[in-house]
């Protein structure tokens, strides 16, 4: 049991980090902070994937030419390369939206925008 927990403790850290990111996304009203939370959330997920690919005593998956070299699994790395780029794309679009919102509403606090919108609705 103890061995088991030691072997998976790394996951738990990653889980805590993920949840911190998610917490920021849900609890903060500032739109930029929400985006930051999203970035932290996603980066933590990347950590999770990369730690999956690790092999004890392995090396980076670049062929060394020696026989019997133990390589870490390249597939999670490939996936995360894609995911990083997708994450940045999301951030960029989100920031563009935030800028427009600031332009139109004069604020980027969610609760202020919400009260603004309800006023608009009741008009």
């Amino acid at each position: 049991m103890i061995h088991g927990i030691l072997g998976i403790w790394n996951y738990w850290i990653v889980i805590i980090l993920m949840m911190t990111g998610l917490f920021i996304v849900i609890s903060r009203h500032n739109l930029v902070k929400k985006m930051v939370g999203l970035t932290i959330f996603q980066t933590s997920v990347f950590l999770f994937y990369i730690s999956l690919g690790k092999v004890q005593g392995g090396t980076a998956p670049i062929l060394t030419g020696y026989k019997n070299t133990l390589y870490s699994n390249p597939l999670p790395h490939v996936l995360i390369l894609t995911a990083i780029v997708v994450g940045v794309a999301t951030t960029a679009l989100g920031l563009a939206l935030i800028l427009r919102i600031k332009n139109e509403y004069g604020t980027i606090e969610e609760n202020e925008i919400a009260s603004f919108n309800t006023e608009e609705n009741s008009k």
């Binding site: 930051v36 990347f46 990369i50 690919g53 390589y71 390369l81 994450g87 940045v88 951030t91 960029a92």
Partner: peptide, 23 residues
Amino acid sequence: SLDAVDVAFTEAAVGAGLSTVLY
């Protein structure tokens, strides 16, 4: 440290660099 050198480069360049610039 987890042997993901390519990912580390990309994360440093795109995740830490580019997106911070955007922010």
